[in-house]
Each structure stands twice: as structure tokens, then as C-alpha cells.
Amino acid sequence: MASILVIEDVPAVLLSIKIVLEGHGHKVTSAQTGEQGLTLLRATPFDLVITDIWMPGSNGVDVIREGRARSPRTRFMAITGGDPNSRGSRDGLHQQDFGADHILLKPFEKDELLKTVSRVLERVASI
């Protein structure tokens, strides 16, 4: 129903998210790096971008920032498995939104993913 760009550097994760979203009827485009994602984003407007935060190369924060600038109507969701350089819990992550509309902490469940996506997309619709 919506066009979603998923940016994630771990192939299995990328694939599993794509399968779930497509199973729900969304159109999913995937990218494995931040640069790839940005390139795609410049070319095409998406309804939603789901991006991993900590990736080698440019990270998700830059993607979100630049993405918003280019495409104000696009929603952004951050997903993350935690700061690989951190020592501890991910409490702080709640506080940081990375500039995204929502954050999901990996590993999230299928339901959680679909519900969050729906909610975020509703906002789009209402604007």
C-alpha cells in the first residue's frame, strides 16, 4: 500500500523485513548502505524510510537528516540493534530519536513492526 525504503547493512535482516512488509502489501525497495539509500531517495519519493542507524560508512542519522531536507513528506523510522561501541543498555536510545519519527529496537517482533509502520503511515495520510 505504501512505498517503503529499507536501508540495512545485514542482508538477512534486510530480507526478513522486506518479506514481512511485502507480505502485508507494502512495496519495498532495499538498500544496503546509507549512500545507496540516499541515492535512491534523491531519485524517488518514498512514503516511508526505515533505516538502520549504525552502519559502516554513513550512518542512519545522516540519511534521516538529508532525507528530510529533500523530502519533507517522507516519514522516517530508525531501527537499531544498539550502539556497537557502547558498553551498556539501550535506555539512552529512547531519548535519542536520531531525528526519526519513531525508533524500533532490534530484535522487534513482526507485529510490532507492522503496527508501527501503520501508525507512522497514518500520519502521512492525515497531512
Binding site: A12, I19, V20, G23, G82, P107, F108
Partner: peptide, 29 residues
């Protein structure tokens, strides 16, 4: 270990992600 704690967590979380999603998907379908 901590320096890598986050890294390990990150990795494992990534690995758990497909399992969580796909196993559920198979069940649902």
C-alpha cells in the same frame, strides 16, 4: 569486554531479527 559488548549485542540483535520476523511470518502464513 564492554568495548565490544555493544558490538556483540548489536550483532546478536541483528541475527535475532530475521529469526523473529521470519519464524512468525511462516506461522502466520
Amino acid at each position: 569486554l564492554g568495548r565490544t559488548m555493544g558490538g556483540v549485542a548489536h550483532e546478536i540483535n541483528n541475527m535475532l531479527q530475521p529469526i523473529a520476523l521470519l519464524a512468525q511470518d511462516v506461522i502466520d502464513k
